[in-house]
Design a protein around this nucleic acid. Structure first.
Lengths: 232, 232
DNA sequence: ATCCAGGCTTGATCAATATCAAGGACGTGA
DNA sequence: TCACGTCCTTGATATTGATCAAGCCTGGAT
């Protein structure tokens, strides 16, 4: 790994609170890899050889069954994925592909497992990361089982707006069909749901979104912390 | 805690591979509590004061939103719940209630968090438990997003049969309305799905189930390891 | 044995979502 | 600027699942 890469990797949230010397030794067995957009980084069912950490770009985590496919989440820089499979030395449950060109830090699974045993701070960082990811899926499962498509979209818009500082103005960060799959609906249903939000003063053109009546949208979406608050 | 209780608690899978002395010290701050059926053990949104481990009985993990409710899972002896909330010192994302009278080991959250830092073996045991739970939810999310109700029921029957040794004979371990909610459908839909399985030689009377044509059911259900294999 | 309550089933209907098909918008490259 | 391909939208229709309303069955209490 090049020096400037090393410099960058040390900053990753996964290494927060981990001793510099230990991070160094972990990174020695790791490498950074660039991938073009749309290539599959990880395939569901394969043994977990690496822990992946996104340095640059967007990664879609998805799963397939028969001829169907659904996206579980879309991750960005700083996020790691497939922690649980690496820790347990099992098979990946999800696949991953870049939505954009990506730069990815790849940590050999064995080094990660060893690290868990050898360095208590790293173990904690891994566990925290995993716990957050775990809670994320639980929230998503609740989102799926307890809400209609329209409610999911409305809540997604509010959450996305809050990420950007609640300006009422935001950009959908990927294709609408990816968003549809993330939200658990067919692309056609997303189109219609978007149209159904016009009375709530939601204005979506292409990827540009304007929320012109936050109150109205909130009364439809009714977000709750235990599903929607990322800090919860 | 009484001596015979202590004896029993030491056997819990959560303490697998953890030094006896350390288990002892953990248990000193813990206690075992009996609850009658149907009482709420944990309420979604409350701060995570305890890690719960089921000693006896069945516990339903569920979540609510507006006037809706869905069961996330049903746990039995040896299972722990709400690990992630305890580790992160955050709020519970799910509620829990006993479906039967229960005996529950309650470990104060702080002791668990301290334990994570102090004892590497316990840290590992916690992480493994959490990783397994995490993968469980991921599988469940895939189950929900990628399959129809009928497919979910068919796969549940096969999985449940395999748990019991693939005898083709099994008992539904709780009320059908709980099963319906677990599988993500209205009770009426479960009834109709059961009827729809008659051509596949599935015979359900009350809680007794007989699978008389495993091949036929398998061809409908099409289980895959990355959703259905608990060992995966 | 009888009665009752809760849980389950069944029927009828409605709402939500998926699917199929076609057309339209938009950005990119020639 | 034009042509093309991709993505998105719209319409029509089918399917799936939810809801409402009885009625039925069963198991436990009397």
């Amino acid at each position: 790994m090049r020096d400037e890469d090393l410099q960058e990797m040390r900053q990753l949230p996964l290494f927060d609170g981990v001793g510099a010397a230990y991070v160094e030794s972990l990174l020695r067995s790791a490498f950074v890899q660039r991938f073009p957009a749309h290539v599959e980084l990880v395939h569901e069912g394969d043994p977990a050889d690496f822990l992946y950490v996104i340095v640059q770009g967007q990664v879609e985590i998805y799963a397939s069954y028969r001829d169907r496919e659904t996206t579980i989440s879309v991750l960005g820089p700083g996020n790691s994925f497939i922690i649980a499979a690496v820790l347990l030395d099992r098979v990946y449950l999800k696949s991953a592909r870049g939505l954009t060109p990506t730069r990815i830090l790849m940590l050999p699974a064995e080094a990660v497992r060893d690290g868990f045993a050898e360095d208590a701070h790293f173990a904690r960082a891994l566990a925290v990361d995993m716990a957050l990811a775990y809670r994320g899926v639980v929230k998503e499962l609740k989102n799926q089982k307890l809400r209609s498509s329209l409610e999911r979209l409305a809540n997604w818009l509010i959450a996305e707006d809050e990420k950007g500082g609640s300006t009422g103005k935001l950009e959908i960060p990927y294709d609408k069909k990816v968003l549809a799959s993330r939200l658990g609906m067919a692309p056609e249903v997303l189109s219609r749901s978007i149209a159904a939000l016009i009375p709530y003063k939601v204005d979506i053109r292409g990827r540009h979104v304007q929320l012109n009546d936050r109150e109205a949208l909130l009364s439809l979406a009714r977000p709750v912390p235990t599903i929607d608050d990322p800090a919860c």
